[in-house]
């Protein structure tokens, strides 16, 4: 078989098997997420970014649901008071488990790190599912923690 055909076969097989196995694997990267990352989309963002300080204002207003996309383990150590744990890959693997709330509710997505592409991807995903007020907290949980803002700790 021609060299290029062989190379093409190996590359295509790797790709197809990779996507298939990931779809089957409960810890895999679902196709849904891969497709989302492909949508270059419009230049208009479907979500808003806020600083940690501005997010604290939302927290004090009591408006909005904080969504913690870190691992459940990290969430159990501590999290923003009142936040709900929906780990990043869980959001994409089982979107049906997302809390049943009104699509006009304010959602505030946060991750651990300063600049989280995961938080942006999650926000985009939620916006695509019809949520109209999605916010990403830039700075992440680490900045919230560093500023001494209200957290809930795991009860041992």
């Amino acid at each position: 078989m021609n060299r290029f055909v062989q190379i093409g076969t190996i590359l295509i097989a790797s790709f197809v098997i990779g996507v298939a196995v990931n779809q089957i694997n409960p810890h895999g990267i679902p196709l849904r997420l891969l497709c989302m990352s492909l949508s270059f989309g419009s230049h208009q963002k479907d979500y808003v970014e806020t600083s940690v300080d501005s997010t604290l204002l939302l927290f004090f207003q009591g408006s909005g649901l904080f969504i913690d996309i870190r691992s459940e383990q990290d969430y159990n150590i501590d999290h923003i008071k009142g936040a709900v744990s929906i780990p990043f890959f869980e959001l994409f693997r089982h979107p049906e488990n997302f809390p049943k709330i009104d699509s006009t509710s304010t959602l505030i997505v946060y991750d651990y790190h300063l600049n989280s592409n995961r938080a942006f991807l999650s926000a985009r995903f939620l916006a695509n599912r019809g949520f109209k007020n999605v916010t990403v907290m830039r700075g992440g949980f680490i900045e919230w923690l560093d500023k001494g803002y209200p957290v809930e700790r795991h009860k041992r």
Binding site: V19, S37, L121
Partner: peptide, 18 residues
């Protein structure tokens, strides 16, 4: 970025295995 990293994670390990 996150997007391409996800695609890489889906492709490269299987390429290595094959």
């Amino acid at each position: 970025g996150t997007d391409l990293s996800l695609w890489t994670a889906v492709f490269i390990p299987y390429l290595e295995a094959i």
